[in-house]
Simulated scan of single mutants.
Amino acid sequence: MINIKNLNKYYGDTKVLNNISIEIDSGEIFAIVGHSGAGKSTLLRCINGLEVYSEGSLKVHNKEIKNLSKEQLREFRKDIGMIFQHFSLIQRKTVYENIALPMELWGYEKKEINKKVKELVNLVGLEEKIDVYPSQLSGGQKQRVAIARALTLDPDILLSDEATSALDPNTTTSILNLLKEINKKLNITIVLVTHEMEVVKQIAQKALLLEHGNIIGLDVTEELFLKPDEKMKHFLGENEVVPNKGINIKLYFPKDNVYQAFITKMARELNMDFNIVWGKLEEINTHIVGNMVINIKEEEKQKVLEYIKEHDIVWEVL
């Protein structure tokens, strides 16, 4: 659906996106993650043609964005909804009027607009707020209006630029659950920009990590957290401190793994004591994944590794 290859973007002499190559599949929830200044919002704006990229290719539905005329770009954006951090609602318009606005601008009939707005208000759970003004809404309710407005033209792609950054944790979770529901019910591809790793864990199926315009990580979300490389560890602020003596073995527990109690089981069956010197378990998209580091004596290494291999556990000696 979205194919980006060797994409570069400059502001003057400053390169803000460096050789970006990714593919985003239809119906996927894809996260673009990075700290402030990483280039994530710039990349998002390239996808819907709000930014012009300097080199490389960016195709959506096999259309090269930089080759579209102004009229073609306007028609193209009809299929892409967008939500922002600060909602961008019109204060003098009601919830109904804010959601109806895109359809009015495209010349839809009132009957069709009314039907669509009521469907969307129901989808985002704001039936009782349809005639109120933004000033009477909470932050989470305002974002629900913004989401409904982004869906009025039946887009097949929804872009989210830090849409939960201004919300408290509970409200963030409710908005993310709404986006997951929309993704499932409407089969809409969602591309979200965020600097919050908790957002990625809750919703994203795949994630791209950007740092100063460079890709430092790209994988299925579970794999990024399960087996972080050194750049990912630095990004997450992780620091594995393990003993200098003995043998340190790292064990990986992927999603739906039945060996969450593996270490206890191994200790009992081998009649050994293990020191767990480092560990992390994360809930990623309702699955528990993680890894642990155990420290054993040198003379126990062969026996322990044979046992691990017999049970199909992914491991490495540090």
Rank of each mutant, 00 (worst) to 15 (best):
L159M: 14
R144W: 14
T189Y: 04
D161K: 08
L186W: 06
E211S: 11
K184Y: 14
N187P: 01
Y133D: 01
E211L: 06
L137Y: 06
T189V: 04
L137I: 04
N183D: 09
E181W: 10
Q141R: 10
L208M: 12
E112N: 08
A163N: 12
V200G: 01
I203D: 00
K180W: 11
A146L: 13
K180F: 13
I203P: 00
K115G: 00
L153C: 13
T194K: 03
I147K: 00
S160R: 00
N114C: 07
N187K: 15
I182P: 01
K180E: 13
A207E: 02
L159V: 12
N177I: 06
Q143W: 11
K118W: 08
V145P: 01
I130H: 05
L120M: 11
L186T: 05
E162G: 14
E162V: 08
E198F: 01
I147C: 04
D156E: 15
K180D: 13
D168Y: 01
Y133L: 13
G125T: 11
L159I: 12
L137Q: 08
Q136N: 14
Q143R: 12
T164N: 10
S138G: 09
T189K: 02
L126E: 05
E181Y: 13
T152F: 14
E128Y: 07
V191D: 04
T194N: 08
L153K: 15
D168V: 02
Q205T: 10
D168W: 07
L208R: 10
L137R: 10
I182A: 03
D161A: 08
E162M: 07
L120H: 03
I190E: 03
E181K: 15
L120V: 04
L159C: 12
S174G: 05
A166V: 06
T171P: 08
Q143P: 03
E128Q: 09
